[in-house]
Simulated scan of single mutants.
Amino acid sequence: MDTLPGICQVCGGWPSHPVCQACARRFAGAVARCDACAAPVPDGVARCGACLTCSAPPALQACAAAVDYAYPWDRLIARFKFRGEPGWAGPFAKQMLGVPHARQLLAQCDCMVPVPLTTTRLGERGHNQAWELAKAVRRQARPLGLTVPAGADPEALVRLVEAPDQHSLSREQRLNNLRGVFAAHPERAARLHAAHVLLVDDVTTTGATLQAAAQALLQAGAARVSALVFARTPPPG
């Protein structure tokens, strides 16, 4: 899917990459985002209001996203996650590497860790979309001359249980729902100690999953945790 010409899966143009350049520019574009949670913000603003008024320092200190979770990306992500099309990791990684904040986080981190699935969910899907993205980002970053972390560990973080449905919950309720869901793998603790870990995932909505994963990594000895995601769900309103 990365190199062979075909039909653009958005506009139907041919010959094309999976998402043609015109559609990528039209539906991705340069969007100013909060450095901490990747929510859209006005140009020149570094932090959104929610992050500025946060009462306690969050476990996740920075987050970069490539696109909004909206048309056409939401449909393509569904194909990536649920319909056995892991090849979408390549086109998505290309969009992620086009974000300056993402490049900065890559250069600063020591290790990339995908947000894990439970073994049951992994068996159902056949692949962990977060790990596919992490591999594609590393693979594409090197030819571009970008700095990439020395390590990438798909087993550094373990998902112990599948959280109940989060769809209708507030951010605080989601955080409570995710307590105890993640744990660092005991055999990876030495690699995580004092490291700047970059979490990788496909979508973030309220950031609750990333915060819970970051907390588990900090408890295991990580010095700092940031995140790189493909899509960020815009806040309501």
Rank of each mutant, 00 (worst) to 15 (best):
D74F: 02
Q166F: 03
N176C: 11
A189L: 07
Q140R: 10
G123A: 10
D201R: 00
L218M: 14
D201C: 03
C8H: 04
L192K: 06
V113A: 08
A30D: 10
A190E: 14
L210A: 08
C51S: 09
C23Y: 07
Q61T: 07
L218S: 04
L4F: 15
Q108L: 10
N176S: 13
R179E: 15
P100C: 12
T3E: 13
Q173S: 13
L210C: 10
K94H: 15
M1L: 15
W131L: 09
A212E: 09
G90P: 02
G145S: 06
L192E: 04
A64G: 06
A208P: 04
A38M: 00
A220H: 02
Y69C: 00
L217T: 07
A89C: 13
L117Y: 04
G151E: 07
L218I: 13
F80S: 05
R138M: 14
R139E: 14
H167V: 13
A152G: 11
A64W: 02
A93P: 13
L60P: 01
R159I: 12
T233V: 03
S55L: 15
G221K: 05
A189T: 09
V161P: 01
A62N: 06
N177I: 11
T147N: 12
A227I: 07
V225A: 05
R26C: 09
A134M: 12
D43C: 00
L144M: 08
A136L: 06
Q95P: 01
R174W: 06
H127S: 09
L106A: 06
S55Q: 15
D202S: 11
C51Y: 12
R179F: 09
A130G: 08
Q104L: 09
A30Y: 03
L146Q: 07
L175G: 03
A130D: 05
E124A: 13
R75E: 14
P186H: 11
A102D: 08
V158E: 14
R121C: 04
T118D: 12
R138S: 13
A107I: 08
G29H: 07
A36V: 13
A89K: 06
E187P: 02
L217R: 08
V225H: 02
P5C: 09
P236F: 02
V41Y: 04
L160C: 11
V137M: 15
P100L: 08
N176D: 12
L157I: 08
L122C: 01
P186G: 10
P143I: 03
C109N: 05
P58K: 11
P164E: 09
A134G: 14
Q9I: 01
L4Q: 13
E162T: 06
N128A: 09
L133V: 03
F182H: 15
A220W: 02
A213C: 13
A65K: 00
A28N: 02
F80D: 06
V67P: 00
V45L: 01
A89Q: 12
P40H: 01
T204N: 00
A102Y: 01
H127F: 14
A32P: 15
A194G: 06
T205A: 04
C34P: 04
L178M: 14
W131M: 10
F92H: 10
V99A: 00
L133T: 06
V31D: 00
A32M: 00
K135P: 01
H196M: 05
R25P: 00
A56W: 13
R179D: 15
P116W: 10
G49Q: 11
M1D: 11
V19N: 09
V19K: 04
F182I: 15
R121V: 05
